[in-house]
Write a protein that binds this DNA or RNA. Structure first.
Lengths: 161, 161
DNA sequence: CAATAACCAACTATTTTGGTCAACTATTAA
DNA sequence: TTAATAGTTGACCAAAATAGTTGGTTATTG
């Protein structure tokens, strides 16, 4: 089992998407700026999120990504699963062939741990996260620090005019 | 955070040690045979376990390793920590500087998850594991399949005689 | 003294992570 | 219709971590 930046990035990006929903699709470039995640890496992650039908994409100018369901319908475990970071703590993938065909001494311990983690993460939805005060605070800070590409283009339009 | 064979091997080996305690020190060669873990890799893991005072060693013939405390005094979290597999799910090591000096959008989520996992694992002692029926079953199978080096030497002594 | 088994250091193969780069396709605004 | 935007795909890459191996040394016991 592993939980590295891959899974964390995916959850963070999905939460960013949830927070900035409502004003049309959100571009990966905006998420990249706000969350400090490389654009090309985000592309890879969102390809997987799309294949798992957690998001849908809109191409062309003004395009970007949108959540494919309501925020209450998406939980953290699903997002992590989607980017292939299994929350499985066993070495055998629950098959029980950890030691030449049979189960190893600690097989059931890792099974128990796996369901513990999965239960915890699957009970937390994007909607839950959005309501948290610490999340709202950080989101406000990020919005202040990074204008979206939309606002950006408005400003350069003014400057040009 | 990561939980790979390293942490699993460490817990498995410690449990093997607990199960075969009472008949003097247990050699790494025996653990290697029974649990199917490479001897030299075990050496590296036990160096760390010893530095963390979870085991003590006895050198020379008939030597090996022993638990440094009672089985109830050693929990799974301690063993995993000892081999440097942190059960920390945050990217910043709880410092809160995940995004250029400030906390990232999902910092508190990973903190919560970390303590969830740590609480779970620290409540399970080696003594608890030994009582489990699935552990006892697997241990019996392993003892049947692999004679200890002690029993082995008894047999070869008979053959020689 | 010889066998045993812990101890130690250095090296290696493989996998995973976290990316980059280039080429391509679909959409829309001018 | 054409340029710009933005997603899509695949190949590639460097660094780090994992899971070892090799080749010793030191301490202990029979």
């Amino acid at each position: 089992m592993r939980l590295t930046t891959k899974g964390r990035y995916a959850v963070t990006a999905m939460l960013d998407l949830a927070i900035h929903a409502g004003k049309g699709p959100v571009s990966l470039a905006d998420i990249s700026e706000r969350q400090g995640i490389s654009l090309s890496y985000l592309e890879q992650l969102f390809a997987k999120l799309r294949r798992n039908e957690l998001v849908r994409s809109v191409r062309g100018p003004g395009g970007g990504y949108q959540l494919n369901r309501e925020q209450q319908g998406i939980n953290v475990a699903q997002v992590i699963d989607a980017v292939n970071e299994s929350v499985d703590a066993t070495g055998c993938g629950h098959t029980g062939s950890c030691q030449d065909g049979s189960i190893c001494l600690t097989h059931h311990l890792w099974c128990d741990l796996s369901s513990q983690i999965h239960d915890f993460l699957s009970q937390i939805t994007l909607a839950d996260l959005m309501e948290r005060s610490d999340v709202r605070t950080v989101a406000k800070r990020q919005d202040r620090e990074h204008l979206s590409s939309f606002e950006d283009s408005l400003i350069s339009a003014k400057v040009t005019a």
